[in-house]
Simulated scan of single mutants.
Amino acid sequence: MLLLLVTLTIAQPISAAEERRVVMLGDSITAGYGLPQGDALPVRLEKELTDRGLDVAVENAGVSGDTTAGGLSRLDWAVQGAPDLVIVALGGNDGLRGIDPADTRRNMDRIVGRLTERGIPVLVAGMLAPPNMGGDYARAFNAIFPEVAEAHGAAFYPFLLEGVAADPALNQPDGIHPNAEGARLVAERMAEPVARALKGS
């Protein structure tokens, strides 16, 4: 009987026990607007992480057009269970619509706060205000993401679209959404910070 138990234990698939679950809560950039699903950012990020030797499944919880208010309203059903990490990649539509930074800050604080209260590690992906919104708006808006992350002890990635924003070669014709190569580059740049956040969880 003891030999049988040992054999069954050894036979269990190790990868299933070790797989880490990541949820990416975001808007159209996360959802993969204008791209085949195989090129969506969460798919690309999963590949980058697995290429680094991590057994990870990245779930796409992106909704096109979502603001931080929308992300907050759907948080409980969008992030179910206890993932190993949630990447909060919201705020771009708040900036595009000129939403009061105080409202964006309040929503981000509630999102990150509720996740950390559930014991879920969080990585906040920062956004930058569109340049046409003016300096005062940009200063108030841009400060939200690092400050909310710091307040809750969350990991922080300074700018989701670093190296991709405003580059016509890396964006779709609308100038806002990354094309396939842009999404690949975003994932490549994010992979190491996400891996560090996972290792700390």
Rank of each mutant, 00 (worst) to 15 (best):
N60R: 10
D27V: 06
R74S: 09
L35K: 11
P13N: 13
Q12H: 03
D66Y: 13
D103T: 15
G92P: 01
S73L: 12
P42R: 05
G32W: 01
L45M: 02
A102M: 14
V122H: 04
N107T: 03
A169Q: 14
I111E: 10
A102T: 13
D94M: 08
G153I: 13
N107A: 04
A31P: 09
L41D: 00
G65E: 03
D51K: 09
A187E: 00
P131Q: 07
A183I: 15
I111Y: 11
D39G: 08
V164Y: 08
L8D: 14
A11W: 02
Q12M: 05
V164N: 03
L123V: 08
R196H: 10
E59N: 09
A143P: 12
R189I: 04
N60C: 07
K47L: 14
G113M: 10
V23W: 09
P173T: 13
G98P: 13
L128S: 03
Q172Y: 09
G70M: 13
T50R: 15
L54H: 14
L45I: 00
L25V: 07
E181F: 15
E19N: 11
A191M: 09
G175P: 02
G98S: 11
P83F: 13
S15N: 13
F156H: 14
D136C: 07
L90N: 01
E192K: 14
G65W: 04
A89K: 11
T67C: 13
A89E: 11
V86N: 06
Q80Y: 15
P42D: 00
P83K: 11
A102E: 14
G134H: 06
Y137N: 04
D27T: 07
R44C: 01
G92C: 03
V148Y: 03
G135D: 09
G81N: 04
N171I: 15
Y157A: 00
M24L: 12
T68M: 01
D76V: 14
I87H: 02
S73D: 05
E18N: 06
V63C: 01
V194H: 10
V43G: 02
K199E: 10
R114W: 04
P173M: 14
M133F: 11
G182N: 07
S28F: 01
L41Q: 00
L123E: 07
E188I: 07
T7R: 12
D109C: 12
D27K: 06
G113R: 12
R189H: 05
A69I: 06
A155D: 02
V186C: 05
I176A: 09
D109G: 12
G98Q: 12
L3P: 10
D103E: 15
Q12P: 01
K199L: 12
N60F: 08
A89G: 12
D94E: 10
R74K: 11
G134D: 05
V22F: 05
A155N: 04
A138N: 02
P193T: 00
L8W: 10
L41F: 01
N142M: 06
G26S: 08
